[in-house]
Amino acid sequence: MSKQPDPTRRSERSRQAILDAARELVSEVGYAKLSIEAIAARAGVGKQTIYRWWRSKGAVVFDAFLALSQDGDSIALPDTGDIEADLKTVMRATAAEFADPQFEAPIRALNTEIANDPELAAHYREKLAGPVDEAKKARLRSAQQAGQIAADADLDLALELLYAPLFQRWLHRSGPLTPEYADALVDLALKALRPD
């Protein structure tokens, strides 16, 4: 008795091949030179297969990088009980990621696409930024409960205090994204957030 092919498994293999191809190609040729045709050729699928799942190359590249961060576990920040140490760990990792040449160009390209494509921006907020921000706020809430951050601190504003300067420095290429810079951001933000 012959076994029938499973179209679901074949679709998942094609989808994964497309995501892998997009990630590889954006690193090799850059976002501007990346095309749906090149992704399809590398993945061994037709262009129509890509357009069945994604409406633009920006959406494909976003999902390719989103897949890297999804390992099946829920997002959580370290919670050792020491908010300063935990925030410095996270901010150093964030600065290192933004400074990594392998990810820097694709991240810049994605930010440009997100800025110019409201649908992609909404997808980004729903799938990545929203859940990550909620995880960050959960860690800050834990620090509030421990008395390390003021009970009335606006946690959305606290995230902006921490991350906006790092993002601005990266966006404008106005200085290095070092561990020392990440630590200084945490120190300054905690001065504003600690209880009186």
Rank of each mutant, 00 (worst) to 15 (best):
K3C: 00
R9E: 13
R10T: 14
S11A: 15
Q16P: 00
Q16R: 14
R23P: 01
V29W: 05
G30N: 08
Y31Q: 01
L34W: 09
I36P: 00
I36T: 15
E37V: 10
A43D: 07
A43H: 06
G46H: 06
K47V: 14
K47P: 09
K47Y: 04
I50T: 05
I50L: 14
W54P: 01
S56N: 08
G58R: 11
V60S: 12
V61S: 09
V61K: 08
F62N: 03
D63K: 07
A64T: 07
A76T: 08
P78M: 07
T80P: 01
D82F: 01
D82E: 07
I83S: 04
T89A: 10
M91F: 06
A96S: 14
E97D: 04
Q102W: 00
F103M: 06
I107M: 12
A109L: 11
L110T: 04
T112E: 15
D117T: 05
P118R: 10
A122S: 13
A122W: 02
H123Y: 12
R125Q: 12
R125C: 05
K127C: 09
K127Q: 15
P131Q: 10
V132D: 04
L140W: 11
Q144M: 04
Q145N: 08
Q148H: 02
L157M: 09
L161H: 09
L162H: 01
P165G: 02
H172Q: 12
S174N: 13
G175M: 08
L177G: 09
Y181N: 01
D187G: 04
L188C: 02
A189C: 06
L193Q: 11
